[in-house]
Write a protein that binds this DNA or RNA. Structure first.
Lengths: 250, 250
DNA sequence: GCTGGGAGAGGCTTA
DNA sequence: TAAGCCTTTCCCAGC
């Protein structure tokens, strides 16, 4: 494909905020948060209307190189065409040197952003807030996404003995980070209230080591069994909750 | 574009492990780790030779929908063509219903995987292991990527007083997780050695709250100043290291 | 296969 | 803008 023609098409596509797809032989250099080079090879370059660019190889979902919020520019000579993308904050630059361009497609692809998703943590959170007795009889909701100085607790509640309960919710297996998160919030809640609080981690499963840590910190874990529902009023359903034996806080 | 022709081209591309690019009007349904639906709109579908598929809109680097390691299948009728991708573990399925197909490109894009990257955490780790005196005079390397029961410590060293030093290295701003990681390893090292150990967090910067936590856990922080070098023998250079005042462990 | 953790993480939400 | 954190995180290396 002729560089002059290809470059003109790409340039027009970019200025119209089109979705521009370029397939060709290129080298790629990136400098910014790291430095990387990709030697000559056939690749797909995707330029989007919001200033994001990604270079894809024929493997993996993630691009080999990419950039968001970039200012794009393309020029060419006899031997090559150069697409450069720059960004100021953080300072980054991406240079795609095309040795040949096989095809260019530029298309208008405006559309409403309307991915409907069920099964996010937020969905589960909303469900639980409707009825916390699933977690424990007599548990009353006080707050959700409660902002502490040390982070944001998913759910704050009060148990039937009047103790403050901090709940951390995970839609997938809980790990070390989940446990330390919860611990931070519980610690903070105790400091504010000036009284012992409880911390409960709710997740479909938890890693063995993380559970050990959780126990040693005096936190509780309950297995959360849920199913996803196709986008309707309720996006998920909590099927049940199985508490592991009470851990005693030391 | 005629469905029969388009579908045949896609089918052939998939079976040849080509990089297949389809642009068209489609709806997308995903069921697996979540459930999502994307209503009718113009999108780009990328099918790769390793069984990954992604559906891109004209914004963001990340795809609206995607799947890796999928088995792909495509069929068509009068009104629509359906591309379905399935995966067994975890059980996932992705269905792309095309109402129209504007273009299909299928290209061979085999190439060596050769992204050369400078400035990864590993690069910095290697550099530090060459000369730990940058961190502190008399500091001697003992091990790197040391596997503990509770995780993997970046660097283990011994200071001039013979105390064990656990070092956690971050290539970017350190946060809560960085601190708790280091704390876990230090705690573990002490348990194994039966003696007090030190923990040093090395990072270009650290969040205010994370630094507070670090201090309260008796850990140390040192600001790591480094620059990236274009792929050469050395991939980075450590320009300096600035220790914050010693924190006293309580 | 599971586990731990890095990533140029991206991207969203709230303060 | 910064901080915090969720993500269908993806992806890789070790065991």
């Amino acid at each position: 494909m002729d560089f002059a023609f290809a470059v003109e098409k790409i340039r027009k596509g970019i200025s119209n905020n089109h979705l521009v797809i370029v397939f060709g032989s290129c080298e790629v250099d990136y400098q910014g948060r790291a430095i990387s080079t990709l030697s000559l090879g056939k690749r797909l370059v995707l330029i989007k209307g919001d200033g994001s660019i990604s270079i894809h190889q024929n493997r993996l979902v993630r691009p080999a190189n990419y950039m968001v919020g970039a200012q794009m520019n393309i020029s060419f000579g006899h031997e090559q065409a150069i697409l450069s993308a720059v960004r100021l904050k953080p300072k980054e630059s991406l240079k795609v040197v095309f040795h040949s361009i096989d095809s260019v497609e530029s298309m208008e692809a405006e559309e409403p952003v309307d991915l409907r998703l069920s099964g996010s943590e937020k969905d589960l959170n909303d469900l639980l807030m409707q009825d916390l007795s699933i977690v424990e009889p007599g548990l009353k909701p006080i707050d959700q996404q409660k902002v502490f100085r040390t982070g944001i607790a998913d759910i704050i509640a009060e148990d039937k003995e009047g103790r403050l309960v901090v709940i951390e919710l995970k839609r997938r297996e809980a790990d070390y980070a989940s446990v330390t998160q919860l611990h931070r919030y519980m610690h903070r809640a105790e400091k504010i209230r000036g009284a012992k609080a409880r911390g409960i981690l709710l997740a479909p499963s938890i890693r063995k080591n993380a559970k050990e840590l959780l126990g040693s910190l005096g936190l509780e874990y309950a297995k959360l069994d849920f199913e996803l529902l196709p986008s309707s009023k309720d996006k998920a359903r909590i099927k049940g909750l199985e508490k592991s034996q009470q851990t005693i806080r030391v």
